[in-house]
Design a protein around this nucleic acid. Structure first.
Length: 491
RNA sequence: CGGGGUGUAGCGCAGCCCGGUUAGCGCAUCUGGUUUGGGACCAGAGGGUCGCAGGUUCGAAUCCUGCCAUCCCGACCA
């Protein structure tokens, strides 16, 4: 396991900050709990965006954009929704500054007080459903399958880089359907899209499930989640998809006429993933040398480092490097040729490892003589010498292998850190000594869930979709249970 | 909002307890030279309102008070 997660003396967040700054991922901003995402980190996010966007389009969704500000009255239309978000809202009360009469600087102009305060969106259900009211009249207008890429603000009491920042980037899908069945189907379809994305692109295995009532999205009837396990044994919720029933349709009076001419409220879903995924990526795969990026999300998949003593040598190497670069790029592989002469090869090796570039090629005079290339892979840190003729296909296959290897490594880790326990002692013991995911029986009551949380800080991450029916007794109360649920300490 | 820690150059820190020249160190930066197959070396240079405000003192990075920021633990968190 990576040093940063095991070394107790070294402050975890200090390390994280450090890696992130050194890797040009982010730096602390002067603004509370917000982050600056540096170009390299943002490039990873852009990859996430473009791959997800393709999947959304393939499932019939389109993009749109809605306002940043939400009138306070909108937010309060749905009772559960406002209760869930009220405590973490940034509020705009004024729209103008003026010069201070008795001194320096600017002050808020009291005359510019807004009649109705505006909330900086913590999520967009309300403002979007306010629009949908005007967009939906007939069954012919349905389904409405819209996604928005945006930033949202949640004034959390405690923030954590990438995992819980005050402002974060995300996508939020908001759909409207004619029937309950169709909406539920959409909710499930999207959690499957997220699961596929997490496993195939991020190389992080997930457990799909539904949240318990107390962990549900504010205003939802059901929340589907994908739960992931980080290297330190803590769980991270990586994406959610909500079945909203008719709650928002009723709150915003969105009705349609169905085929038989009857008026009914529409059925809704919403679903989202955020820059938290970048946090998951870092925490799931990083090692002591820095980031480990799965090839499918790496902004740079292959870096070529020339090793040379003089400009003549560099020229000769560059010719070969360019050929390789062109060959790889024709296969859709992103390649960077780093011919800067102001850093030594050793420095570049370490730097690209820190940045998680999956494959590094080194070409020196020795290789020119032999017609070879040195190939180093980031996931295993091993090196091989490959002939120049074979290099293009070799790299294509290698990238695939690395992608699979990173996933199976994470899967193996997860397997080793899933426990099945049947008693309270075992539960507490596993939690403290091992951590990870714990499958255990629960009597199904919010009171028991709450009590377990209080006693152990472990929460029910989800009721897994593939959990088998089996007779059992609740680990706390001993009452009968028919299914195991997934417990863990979480971020 | 409670408990604890920290704030000194771009980054990481020492100095503070026990006040006393011109505030140091490592990394990074710049210049010159030698280097370049795993984070190069030598020589030189630049860079600081010591978080902010007030107080004590002949004298404050150092002591006192207040404030601010930040981190950790709690509370909070789909």
């Amino acid at each position: 396991m990576a040093k940063f997660l095991t070394n107790k003396e070294e402050n975890y967040s200090q390390w994280y900050n450090d890696l992130v700054i050194k890797a040009d991922m982010a730096e602390n901003s002067a603004v509370r709990g917000c982050m600056v995402i540096k170009p390299y980190g943002y490039a990873i996010w852009e990859k996430v965006q473009s791959e997800l966007d393709k999947m959304f389009k393939a499932t019939g969704h389109v993009n749109a954009y809605f306002p940043l500000f939400i009138p306070k009255s909108f937010l309060s239309r749905e009772a559960d929704h406002v209760e869930g978000f009220a405590k973490e809202c940034a509020v705009v009360t004024h729209y103008r500054l003026k010069n201070d009469e008795n001194g320096r600087g600017v002050v808020v102009d009291p005359a510019a007080k807004l009649e109705e305060e505006l909330i900086v969106r913590p999520t967009s259900e309300t403002i979007i459903w306010n629009s949908y009211k005007n967009w939906v009249h007939s069954y012919r207008d349905l389904p409405l399958l819209i996604n928005q890429w945006a930033n949202v603000v949640r004034w959390e009491m405690r923030t954590r880089l990438f995992l819980r920042t005050a402002e974060f980037l995300w996508q939020e899908g908001h759909t409207a359907h004619a029937t309950q069945e169709e909406a539920i189907e959409e909710t499930q379809k999207m959690i499957n899209v997220y699961a596929e994305f997490a496993e195939n692109f991020m190389a992080i295995p997930v457990i799909k499930g539904v949240k318990t009532a107390s962990e549900r999205f504010a205003g939802a009837l059901d929340t589907y989640t994908i739960e992931t396990l980080m290297q330190d044994g803590k769980a991270l919720q990586a994406g959610t998809s909500h079945f909203l029933g008719q709650n928002f349709a009723k709150a915003f009076d969105v009705q349609f006429t169905d085929k038989s001419g009857k008026l009914d409220y529409v059925w809704a879903t919403s679903w989202g993933v955020s820059t938290r995924l970048i946090g998951a990526l870092i925490m799931a795969h990083s090692d002591n040398n820095g980031l480990v990026l799965p090839p499918n999300l790496a902004p740079i998949q292959v870096v070529i480092v020339p090793i040379f003593k003089n400009p003549e040598q560099l020229n000769a190497i560059s010719k070969e490097a360019d050929k390789i670069k062109t060959g790889l790029e024709s296969l859709g592989i992103s390649v960077k040729y780093d011919d800067r002469d102001n850093n030594t090869p050793g420095f570049k090796f370490a730097d690209y490892e820190l940045k998680g570039v999956p494959v590094r090629l080194a070409i020196g005079p020795r290789d020119l003589e032999n017609g070879t290339v040195e190939v180093a892979r980031r996931d295993t840190l091993t090196k091989e010498v490959v002939s120049m003729q074979a290099i293009t296909n070799y790299i294509r296959d290698l990238l695939r292998e690395i992608q699979e290897n990173i996933f199976s490594k994470a899967l193996k880790f997860r397997k080793e850190n899933i426990s099945y326990v049947d008693s309270w002692e075992e539960f507490v013991d596993t939690l403290n000594k091992k951590g990870g995911f714990i499958y255990a029986h629960w009597d199904g009551t919010p009171a028991t869930e709450e009590k377990i949380k209080e006693m152990t800080k472990a929460t029910i991450r989800c009721i897994p979709l593939d959990s088998k029916e089996e007779e059992g007794k609740c680990i706390l109360t001993g009452k009968p249970s028919t299914k195991r649920v997934l417990f863990a300490r979480a971020y």
